[in-house]
């Protein structure tokens, strides 16, 4: 290891990156990279406090080096304390997710296409959901050979990994947002346009500041269209917003 590690340097945002190589309990060598935000604060304290700062650790912490131990001390996620006169209004109304679903989308059984949940289908024990059968058959076909098959050509080709499927047809993209923009600012901005499914404000990983753009999915296309019309070119925080559909290839 060189005496001076360039990665230990502090960058312009005051972020220090510390890299160390350790051996874990399984005997494997692991590289641990820690990003630390440095902030120097000078504080005047009284004599007794300064003395206590020099005390040696005792009990379960005996012999530990000075500085917080990562086992017992961690930094939590950023929490917001927004003081306001009517804090009760800030509270988001609690909604039953199943109720919401039934109001917006019709429930369709995957087995018999009836208007009930698949788990409650009377033919549950005798039939299998149609698309599941198809997927299984395809999977069997591919399994035969030993040749490498790229994921895009395997069974269920074209399927995105589970959990990443998202209908982006009602999504819009807002860009040219200021650094200080938060989720709640964007929500506030879109309150008049209609109910939103998802609000995602891109944030810098280390500083937590907005990267300048956000994606919003509405429940209805009309609301999305309305938002684009009313907010494109709208001045927000001294910047002029650019609002468009999230999908570029959209007609």
């Amino acid at each position: 290891m060189p005496a001076h590690n360039w990665s230990d340097d502090v960058d312009e945002n005051g972020i220090k990156t510390v890299t160390e190589i350790k051996t874990n309990e399984n005997g494997e060598k692991v590289k641990v990279t820690k990003k630390i935000q440095l902030k120097t604060q000078t504080k005047q304290v009284n004599h007794a406090v300064a003395e206590r700062r020099k005390w040696k650790k005792f009990g379960a912490c005996k012999g530990f080096p000075s500085g917080p131990d990562s086992e017992s001390t961690t930094i939590g996620e950023r929490v917001m304390l927004k003081l306001s006169l009517n804090a009760k209004d800030l509270e988001e109304p609690e909604e039953d997710p199943t109720k919401k679903l039934s109001a917006n989308a019709k429930i369709v059984c995957r087995i018999c296409k009836g208007d009930h949940w698949t788990t409650k289908c009377p033919f549950k024990d005798t039939y299998q959901p149609s698309n599941e059968i198809a997927a299984k058959v395809e999977a069997k076909d591919v399994k035969g050979g030993n040749k490498y098959v790229p994921p895009s050509k395997r069974g269920g080709a074209g399927d995105k990994p589970a959990g990443r499927e998202r209908d982006d047809s009602n999504s819009i993209r807002i860009s040219n947002l200021s650094e200080e923009t938060t989720d709640s600012d964007v929500r506030e901005l879109l309150r008049k346009c209609g109910p939103t499914q998802r609000v995602f404000v891109a944030k810098d990983h280390s500083t937590g500041l907005c990267k300048g753009y956000a994606f919003i999915t509405f429940f209805s296309q009309d609301a999305a269209e309305h938002a684009i019309k009313s907010l494109n070119g709208y001045g927000f925080d001294n910047l002029i917003l650019k609002v468009d559909w999230a999908q570029r290839d959209r007609n």
Binding site: G59, D69, T73
Partner: peptide
Amino acid sequence: SNGERLGTFE
């Protein structure tokens, strides 16, 4: 100030 544990009392 920094959440460092000074000690425990057993």
